[in-house]
Amino acid sequence: MRTIQIEASSNHYPVRVGAGLRHQLGQWINKGDYSRVLLVADEAVVAYYSNDCMKALENIVPVHLYAVPSGEASKSFSEYEKILQKALAVGLDRKSCMIALGGGMIGDLAGFAAASYMRGVGFIQIPTTLLAHDSSVGGKVAINLEHEKNMVGAFYQPDGVYYDIETLQTLPEHEWRSGFAEVIKHGIIGDSSLYHDLRNAFPSLDAVRSDADLALTIERAIRVKAHVVAQDETETGVRAYLNFGHTLAHALESMTNFEMSHGDAVSIGMRFALRMSRKLTGTQVQEKDWREWFDGLGFPRLSPHLDVCDMLKKMKKDKKSTSGQINMVLLEEIGRVCLRSVDDEMIIEELKAFQREEQA
């Protein structure tokens, strides 16, 4: 088992990464820590892992289960309200805890419910996707507003994150790919040695899925995020760097009604950010290198059927944008990024060129 300590200003907590951790919750959650627990689980993982979690806690604290329908559509006001109603019905009080069992959607949804129920109750993350190595750490919790991603939320740190890598074995291929995009991002923005190791070790998704020491790779990616969160918990400065590739990615997710996975969108967003970086920061990293690597991993290219002007409108709703000005995280060199304002005309021009080259 590997442990990373998160040193956020509002809370310090461990992220534990290893095999079988769902069976060991009783080692870290003690009698008296919480009066009652609501396990909020993705319905896709309930049959696999909820009983294990509940059994591990059965002699420690009363546990209740609430299953959430799978998919980004559940990150909504209606599901958020249902969780609060369930919490009230089973008697959660201010000394209670909500545990999120699932991927990033569940962590965001349950975390926002925990942050607001009775003005805040305990919160624990048990991620079950590779993508959630990113979303489960750092305390950003949210729900979507209509078709806009993460527009209603809070900064609310968990009491602990228990990342059982055995749960990854039931993931479909597209979920592995989606999560690996964020692993790559962490190397790009904050750890050049991680980036180069990923390039050398993982030319294909099959190599990722069969990695004998996946826990180490996940730990290294989480340490990049932990370092950033320790400096800037509430995204007033360098934490924005974690959004490399996300300005276009969130626009693409919204335009496809979230049918495009987050990681697939981020992979396109990162390549576009690299293109903008070559224009504005002079980075020497070659677009061709990333395109070939990402193609080998199975990431999609930008569709020629999406309207560039619509992309721009969606990008302007990005939370880094100010006064209608798009601010993008750009690459200076592997391991170092910066935040730059980019005018609309350049965005339009480069999106059109990028879209054409994507079809070559």
Rank of each mutant, 00 (worst) to 15 (best):
Y66G: 03
D310W: 06
V337G: 06
W28G: 01
H174K: 10
S341V: 14
H246C: 03
F180M: 09
E292F: 09
C97D: 03
F258R: 04
S303H: 13
T170D: 04
N30V: 04
K95E: 12
G160H: 08
A67L: 09
A201I: 10
V61G: 05
I189M: 07
L92C: 10
L145K: 09
F354T: 09
G102W: 08
E173W: 02
S178N: 11
S35C: 01
M54N: 08
I334S: 07
M255N: 14
A154I: 12
Y241L: 14
E253A: 05
I83D: 04
A240K: 05
I165P: 10
G296F: 10
V208W: 03
E357H: 14
E219A: 15
V224D: 02
Q286G: 06
M151N: 11
Y156I: 00
E166H: 07
H250M: 11
M315H: 05
H174V: 00
R278D: 08
K288T: 15
G190R: 07
A154T: 13
S74V: 12
A89W: 02
V224H: 07
A215P: 01
A114F: 01
L331W: 06
G138W: 02
A56Q: 10
G122L: 06
V337C: 15
Q157E: 13
Y156D: 12
L339S: 05
E333W: 06
G103F: 08
T167I: 05
I218G: 09
M151F: 12
L57C: 12
R336M: 12
A273Y: 05
Y34H: 05
F299K: 01
L131I: 14
F112N: 04
L39S: 01
L38F: 01
S116M: 10
G324P: 04
V63W: 04
T3Y: 01
S136I: 08
V61W: 05
E182R: 05
A56R: 10
V161F: 02
C309I: 08
L252K: 03
D42N: 14
S341I: 13
N144Y: 05
R239K: 13
D289T: 15
F244Y: 15
G111A: 06
E345F: 11
P203Q: 07
N144E: 06
T170L: 09
I184W: 05
A110C: 14
L194F: 14
D164P: 07
S277D: 11
M328L: 15
D264N: 10
Y48S: 05
A230P: 00
